[in-house]
């Protein structure tokens, strides 16, 4: 899928959880949101993008996508 709209959406999700005082919890909430609301081909696209460096994604969002990838891989 076209990656730019996905980057924008993921960063917006990240901005909401920036208000959470615990970064680990915020990271987990971002990953949960992606897991619960994004269709698999969207998740695959964003995970692949992070695997290639994740350009354009805010750092906490990159971390959250990595967490998502780990969960999907069953880690």
């Amino acid at each position: 899928m076209e990656i730019q709209p996905l980057i924008k959406m993921a960063n917006q999700i990240g901005q909401f959880f920036e208000a959470w005082p615990d970064p680990a919890q915020a990271r987990s909430e971002i990953a949960n949101h992606l897991q619960r609301f994004w269709e698999p081909r969207m998740r695959r696209a964003i995970v692949a993008h992070v695997e290639q460096g994740g350009e354009g994604l805010a750092l906490p969002v990159r971390d959250a996508v990595k967490l998502l990838a780990e969960r999907q891989a069953g880690h």
Partner: peptide, 18 residues
């Protein structure tokens, strides 16, 4: 068990051919 596409995502997916 996986969530599906929203309207906006369907339109994006249509443009990318899937």
């Amino acid at each position: 068990p996986e969530p599906g596409l929203r309207i906006t995502n369907m339109l994006e997916a249509a443009l990318d051919g899937s």
